[in-house]
Design a binder for these strands. Structure first.
Lengths: 247, 247
DNA sequence: TAGATTGTTAATCGATTAACAATC
DNA sequence: TAGATTGTTAATCGATTAACAATC
């Protein structure tokens, strides 16, 4: 079972680079942000307990998550904030910059284009595209809205791998198809439709009304339990005094 | 174990109304949307297979999910689209309207305020609030931006249970605290910070850069595997031909 | 009745958590 | 060395999936 040489083969074991669980991947950006916040406050070292508090998870989960990346902590001491920050950024792939194109520059597209976290977090907008000729040429932040027809050119010129869809629902599938045909393999979809894509293309969806509906479900449960009914089984706490639901 | 009367006690078993798994709750809005789309196309009945395809899940999962709500299908036939749609809406709590307040009316707040899916899906904006006096009075959609100081009045006047935070990160925790103090028990947070709330308050977070980072991680994995390397273990498919990542 | 499809069971898989040996 | 804290193990919990008996 064990290799002839008992020394650990760091290249294989310390950086698995494969097989990080999805749930862990989804938390890495949260840890990254927590580390950046600690660094900004001038904190050089943090224990898993402190880091977990900043990230809003429990420390066992955090240590387990970090163990998939390698052994970047020091027993008895904690984690070097700057070093761990770099390791997570590298694992996610943020040591390079990702060119991103946004299609559909309505209200939401404007908000996305002006979102400062975009540039600061390893992403760069290389194109804002809209199908409405009346919008083409409009200046949004540092960019000028281009015609939707420019999609293929922008994708190939900048080597875009990630596309953002903030069009109306009716246009989203067509835009997605064309993004994929142009070479995009990751799509962030804000339109309220289920996109169908070929194997090998990743889609993530952000949906305001889904989020609100999930909250509404829990809110209704709280109301059914009634004020003062005691702890709820599902939600992690007791109902607090609330105002009536509908005026 | 079984009650004296073998007849099923529908009130308890057909409508558990308690203990629906979180993962199922998160999919109910997706099913609701799929059913609405089917209804719009004039389809009156759908099998679990058809419905699952429209929702982008597999049919076993869909049937399992629906079984938590009750037995709303007909064996050998399928589900009545309109009936199931109503049952899911009722389960989520969308047979009533939820008054929502939005704090922070920058680019994103404007987008949210103008989002049509808001009203059509059981939610109603009852207040748009901003701390910047220069913005107060501005008309956004059907509403006029009000002073942040109006928060308590709006919450109590309309019985607001759900608050949306679209402020800068620095303001989010303060806004959240004040929302909770005013009686809000569900918060949808768009600011890139981990909010801390007392037990009994639900928080959901929507975070653009987190979503992009998750995509970047998978994108990097595809690049590491290399074009033509064959199926990836984690991602559900084979890498397709891609453009270079960085120009 | 024969065919179709649900609702449920049971097996499997993945995620979370507590506990603690390893080790700084 | 004594104290602190990581990295890992193992137990538990929850979610997914295939398969099929129930039943329209």
């Amino acid at each position: 079972m064990s290799p002839p040489n008992p020394r650990r083969t760091n290249e294989q074991e310390a950086r698995p680079s494969r097989g990080i669980p999805e749930a862990t991947v989804a938390r890495l950006p949260v840890y990254l942000r927590a580390l950046t916040a600690l660094a900004d406050r001038g904190i050089a070292t943090a224990s898993s307990e402190e880091l977990a508090r900043a990230a809003g998870v429990n420390s066992a989960k955090l240590r387990k998550d970090l163990s998939y990346l390698g052994s970047y902590g020091t027993r008895g001491v904690g984690y070097d904030v700057e070093y761990l920050r770099y390791q997570i950024a590298r694992e996610i792939g943020l040591t390079q910059d990702w060119p991103v194109v946004i299609v559909g520059i309505g209200n939401l597209g404007h908000a996305l284009a002006n979102y400062s976290g975009f540039v600061s977090r390893g992403f760069g907008i290389v194109g804002l595209l809209d199908a409405d000729p009346a919008r083409v040429g409009e200046q949004v932040g540092d960019h000028e809205i281009q015609a939707y027809g420019e999609l293929e050119r922008v994708v190939s010129e900048y080597g875009v791998a990630i596309g953002v869809i903030s069009t109306p629902a009716t246009a989203a599938q067509e835009v997605c198809d064309r993004m994929v045909a142009a070479g995009i393999t990751s799509v962030l979809n804000f339109a309220p439709v289920v996109l169908s894509v070929p194997a090998g293309v990743d889609v993530r969806k952000v949906d305001l009304s889904t989020e609100l509906q999930i909250l509404a479900y829990h809110e209704q449960r709280k109301a059914l339990a009634g004020p003062g009914t005691g702890p709820l089984s599902q939600v992690d706490g007791i109902p607090v005094e609330r105002s009536p639901l509908v005026p």
